[in-house]
């Protein structure tokens, strides 16, 4: 990479227009309920936009390929982190003992305090009957 690459103005304008268009896409898809796929789509569009900026505005495409390698590596490591972490969160409680406690963390949170309290087997528990509970244990 001895000489400096000069990008024609037209390219910049096309990229700028694509970025604006993709911003529109982000807003548009947010109105469509795709469930958990919404976040995947939003992240995908954002990644495409960031890549356009890096490749064209920041000249990564014409730069030393080592820098491109670094950029791709960072995406790869991010991918590794998210994918493997989701092997956990996506399959949490996969021993499948009980559908009620399959996501114990979120279902027990005060933040989602809408479900009735249950014991580990999914039977409803009365919050105010501690003594009763102890009796049960003794038998």
């Amino acid at each position: 990479m001895s000489e400096h690459h000069i990008t024609p103005l037209k390219t910049y304008l096309i990229i700028a227009a694509s970025l604006l268009f993709l911003s529109g896409v982000t807003v548009w898809v947010s109105y469509i309920d795709l469930g958990s796929f919404n976040i995947v789509l939003a992240m995908f569009v954002a990644t495409v936009k960031a890549s356009l900026v890096a490749f064209f505005f920041m000249h990564l495409l014409w730069d030393d390929k080592k820098n491109l390698t670094m950029f791709l590596m960072s995406l790869m490591f991010f991918g590794i982190f998210v994918t493997i972490t989701m092997l956990d969160t996506g399959f949490r409680g996969d021993l499948g003992l009980n559908p009620e406690t399959k996501d114990p963390i979120n279902k027990r949170a005060a933040f989602y305090d809408t479900l009735p309290l249950t014991d580990t087997h999914g039977h409803p528990v009365d919050e105010h009957s501690d003594e009763h509970h102890e009796d049960k244990d003794h038998h």
């Binding site: 972490t85 969160t89 949490r92 963390i105 979120n106 027990r108 949170a109 005060a110 933040f111």
Partner: peptide, 13 residues
């Protein structure tokens, strides 16, 4: 923090 809807195991990740 699970009390806030978070996931303590995520911290460990």
């Amino acid at each position: 923090d699970p009390a806030l809807g978070g996931d303590p195991v995520l911290y460990q990740h």
